[in-house]
Deep mutational scan, measured.
Amino acid sequence: SEIVVAMYDFQATEAHDLRLERGQEYIILEKNDLHWWRARDKYGSEGYIPSNYVTGKK
């Protein structure tokens, strides 16, 4: 599975969105859409994140 790191904070506005915290790692579950990826955080929460807010883990 692909691990990404959040470059920016993202506040979830929709129920299906996942909040991003800058510097935290997330697991990508689905990339069915170019701009919104389904991800899981370290607490096990899942939701959609803006793909341009994250970068591949170095």
Score class of each variant (00 low, 15 high):
29 L>P: 00
32 N>D: 11
33 D>H: 10
34 L>R: 12
17 D>S: 14
4 V>N: 02
49 I>A: 01
53 Y>K: 07
35 H>V: 11
40 R>S: 05
37 W>S: 01
54 V>M: 04
42 K>W: 05
15 A>Q: 11
31 K>L: 04
27 I>L: 12
41 D>H: 02
20 L>H: 00
38 R>I: 10
43 Y>K: 07
14 E>W: 10
35 H>S: 09
23 G>Q: 04
49 I>F: 06
50 P>D: 05
1 S>Y: 15
13 T>H: 11
1 S>F: 15
33 D>L: 08
46 E>Q: 06
15 A>H: 11
35 H>C: 15
45 S>M: 14
24 Q>H: 10
35 H>D: 09
15 A>N: 10
53 Y>I: 06
52 N>A: 14
19 R>T: 15
38 R>Q: 05
24 Q>C: 12
52 N>K: 12
19 R>H: 11
29 L>S: 02
32 N>Q: 11
29 L>A: 00
44 G>S: 04
13 T>F: 10
45 S>L: 12
36 W>P: 00
43 Y>V: 05
54 V>C: 04
27 I>P: 01
10 F>E: 00
33 D>F: 09
37 W>E: 00
41 D>V: 02
42 K>L: 07
24 Q>A: 10
47 G>W: 03
51 S>G: 06
12 A>S: 12
47 G>L: 02
45 S>I: 13
21 E>Y: 10
7 M>C: 15
36 W>A: 04
6 A>G: 03
5 V>G: 01
28 I>L: 08
50 P>W: 05
7 M>I: 14
42 K>Q: 11
11 Q>E: 15
31 K>C: 10
10 F>W: 15
35 H>E: 09
11 Q>C: 14
16 H>Q: 12
44 G>K: 03
8 Y>R: 13
50 P>C: 10
53 Y>L: 12
2 E>V: 11
58 K>N: 14
6 A>K: 01
47 G>H: 02
28 I>E: 01
17 D>H: 15
15 A>E: 13
7 M>Y: 05
57 K>G: 10
47 G>T: 04
22 R>P: 05
4 V>W: 10
8 Y>Q: 09
26 Y>F: 03
27 I>D: 04
47 G>Q: 01
30 E>P: 01
45 S>G: 12
3 I>C: 09
52 N>C: 15
16 H>L: 08
8 Y>K: 11
40 R>F: 04
45 S>C: 15
6 A>Q: 01
13 T>I: 14
33 D>V: 05
38 R>D: 00
39 A>E: 02
23 G>Y: 06
28 I>N: 00
13 T>A: 11
43 Y>T: 09
36 W>Q: 06
51 S>L: 04
34 L>I: 12
46 E>G: 02
24 Q>M: 10
27 I>F: 10
4 V>H: 04
44 G>R: 02
8 Y>H: 09
55 T>W: 07
3 I>F: 08
1 S>N: 13
52 N>R: 12
38 R>P: 00
30 E>H: 07
5 V>R: 07
55 T>V: 13
36 W>N: 06
20 L>V: 04
50 P>G: 03
46 E>P: 01
57 K>N: 10
1 S>C: 15
12 A>P: 15
4 V>I: 04
17 D>T: 15
12 A>L: 04
29 L>H: 00
52 N>E: 11
1 S>T: 13
19 R>V: 09
16 H>K: 13
28 I>C: 03
23 G>S: 04
36 W>K: 09
20 L>Y: 01
22 R>W: 07
36 W>D: 01
4 V>K: 03
44 G>L: 04
53 Y>A: 09
5 V>K: 05
19 R>C: 14
27 I>C: 09
6 A>S: 05
27 I>E: 10
12 A>M: 06
36 W>S: 05
32 N>S: 14
55 T>D: 07
9 D>I: 04
5 V>N: 03
58 K>C: 14
53 Y>G: 06
3 I>E: 04
10 F>P: 00
27 I>S: 06
5 V>S: 04
13 T>V: 14
5 V>L: 09
20 L>R: 00
13 T>G: 08
10 F>G: 01
50 P>I: 03
56 G>H: 15
31 K>Q: 07
33 D>R: 08
